[in-house]
Design a binder for these strands. Structure first.
Lengths: 231, 231
DNA sequence: ATCATGGGTGTACGCCGTACACCTGACAAG
DNA sequence: CTTGTCAGGTGTACGGCGTACACCCATGAT
């Protein structure tokens, strides 16, 4: 009994004290494995070896936790490179953002959801947007044009353009999946496209498409479109 | 007591029987007012004057409910116009999708979330995508090019390109909002842009920007970019 | 007359976020 | 050295959620 007490004490003594930073990074880690649904205040507390309510001494509530996690992620995006023309600067930055989002697949959903819910983005996000605008401005964009540019880039600014129909490993299984022939009959164009893309006859939907290439293709298309609008 | 029984019976008799369609449209209505957070199986059941578990006779679970709601919404998008060149056909369709999404502001989030979770889109969404591909194909796009095109359009295909920083009425209030001068110091480019956009000195962030114009600007930019790639 | 069945009911379980009261140990002031 | 403050961890509890499971009952086929 004394042993137990001593050990408990030892554990207590060993445990590095909680902190906002520790909470946030544990939350990110928890979301990284198991997706955002696996992130609950209770599970997070358990991972940190602490009682759930302890977290509330470091984050106001779950939404603020999510905001903090977003800040952590945005902090992972490379700063803009110096000495580059605006197009490559934007390009590099967006690709860096994309890499971050590929490391944290749950992030785009959380970012979008929180962006819609919050009155204003967090300071960290604000600074990201600000410096992005700065790149355009330094590249000679008028205020009007940079405004349009930000809208054009839209979600690509943060590194994602919804991969709407994507390979789909690890998704919910589809009970009523169609046999290929019925597929071809009902959705001739999808099927045709899928066949052309996957030259091996794998699962008809989506695989075999180089996402990175597609992403850069789209990114460059819009960047070139913007470049043509410069005086 | 007999009265009560009779009245209950009358209610019972009056109530039009549940059906998947009735459940789905009630769910959409419930989400329309109060956002997607206000949509719970329990509240939905209450609206329909029924016990929660009754819903499960018509939808397998909440995710399937959401999928059904998406189908309802996609069904609201205008079919492609006949006798139009590909560009205007795509343009009109996407603008119709956008109108639907403005009617149901919660929809884009749900669509994105469910698209990520499901193995394959529902048949209704598949048909939408299929016919969209069909428009491009009829316009002379090669398979490769229409593939790129679908990626380029990305979320715009469904009528939304995240309005990342948007006017923000009805959002969570921001406790630590900055005074304008500090705003200008920390985020010079955002401030400059915001000042240029809102010619009246309203709240510095975002208002006074014509979303519809921006959306069409971006849409046309990408459509023009695609047009330049045609042989 | 019987019986199967589709659709509504009731109860119960385990999860969730978090309000609120409490404790405790470190540290500053006297 | 005492005393008081207080940041930070604890324990309990509440209301809401999705949904499994057992049930009942009216309808219509046999």
């Amino acid at each position: 009994m004394v042993e137990i007490a001593r050990q408990a004490d030892a554990v207590h003594r060993t445990r590095t004290p909680l902190s906002r930073a520790r909470v946030l990074s544990a939350a990110v880690a928890l979301a990284d494995e198991g997706g955002v649904d696996a992130l609950s205040m209770r599970k997070l507390a358990q991972v940190l070896g602490v009682v759930p309510m302890a977290l509330y001494k470091h984050v106001a509530n779950k939404n603020e936790l999510l905001d903090g996690m977003i800040d952590v992620l945005v902090g992972e995006i490379d700063p803009p490179v110096a000495d580059a023309d605006w197009k490559t600067a934007v390009r590099l930055r967006v690709l860096s953002a994309r890499r971050m989002l590929l490391r944290h697949p749950w992030a785009s959903g959380v970012i979008e959801a929180r962006m819609k819910a919050r009155a204003a983005p967090t300071p960290v996000v604000m600074e990201y947007l600000d410096s992005m605008i700065g790149i355009f401005r330094a590249g000679g964009f008028s205020l009007d044009l940079v405004h349009h540019a930000m809208h054009v880039m839209g979600s690509r600014l943060l590194g994602f353009s919804q991969e709407l129909f994507e390979d789909g490993a690890g998704r919910e299984p589809d009970p009523d999946a169609l046999p290929p022939e019925e597929m071809a009959a009902r959705y001739p164009h999808i099927t045709e496209l899928a066949m052309a893309v996957t030259h091996d006859e794998g699962s008809v939907v989506g695989s075999g498409c180089d996402d990175q290439y597609e992403f850069e293709f789209a990114l460059d298309l819009t960047l070139d479109g913007l470049a043509r609008l410069l005086p």
